[in-house]
Simulated scan of single mutants.
Amino acid sequence: MGAAKVMVSKREFCIKEGYQVRIDLLDWFEAQHQSGQKTTVEQARNKQSELLAKYKERFDLL
């Protein structure tokens, strides 16, 4: 068993960084959708960068 595959219709939304960042970003996308907000690629990139920075701050201990 592994992580579920996530399919997106726009290549710009593809996420290459770590698993936890991907899950957190998917949660953010869901919150955006639930609130009725349309998400742009730029917003997604900014959120991804923010989540990746937090992830690295927390787990890159070497």
Score class of each variant (00 low, 15 high):
Q48C: 11
F29S: 03
R45C: 10
G18H: 07
R11M: 08
S49D: 12
T39I: 14
Q48F: 03
Q20K: 11
A31D: 13
C14Q: 04
Q37S: 09
R11K: 15
A44K: 04
Q43F: 02
F29G: 01
E12A: 09
M7K: 03
S9D: 11
N46Y: 12
Q20C: 06
K47C: 01
M7Q: 05
Y19W: 14
K56Y: 00
E57T: 05
T39N: 01
K54H: 06
R11Y: 05
N46W: 11
E17P: 06
K54G: 06
E12N: 04
V21T: 13
W28G: 02
Q43H: 08
K10R: 13
M1T: 12
L26Y: 12
D27S: 15
I23Y: 01
Y19K: 15
Q37W: 01
T39A: 09
L25V: 07
E12R: 01
K54D: 10
Q32K: 08
Q37I: 04
L51C: 08
Y55P: 02
Y55L: 12
L51R: 02
D60K: 15
K16R: 15
F29Y: 10
V41W: 04
K47F: 01
Q34D: 10
T40E: 05
L61C: 08
S9W: 03
A44V: 11
E57A: 10
E30P: 00
A44T: 13
V8P: 00
Y55I: 06
L62K: 07
S35I: 05
C14P: 00
K5R: 14
M1Q: 12
L62P: 08
S35Q: 15
A53M: 10
Q32R: 05
A53C: 06
K5Q: 10
K38S: 13
V6Y: 04
Q37A: 12
H33A: 09
F59E: 15
V8L: 12
D27W: 07
Q34E: 11
F13M: 01
F13V: 01
K56E: 09
N46I: 15
V21D: 03
K38D: 12
D24N: 15
A31C: 06
L25C: 04
Q43V: 04
R22Q: 08
A3Y: 11
Q32W: 00
E12K: 01
E50I: 00
T39P: 00
Y55E: 14
V8I: 11
A4K: 11
V8T: 12
Q43C: 05
V41E: 06
K54M: 08
V41C: 05
L61G: 06
R22I: 04
K10W: 02
H33L: 09
K38P: 03
Q43D: 11
L51Y: 02
V8M: 08
G18L: 05
S35W: 04
D27L: 11
S49I: 06
T40P: 02
L51Q: 02
G2E: 15
L25I: 04
A4F: 09
T40H: 08
F29N: 02
M7C: 02
Q32Y: 01
N46D: 15
M1Y: 06
Q20D: 13
V21N: 03
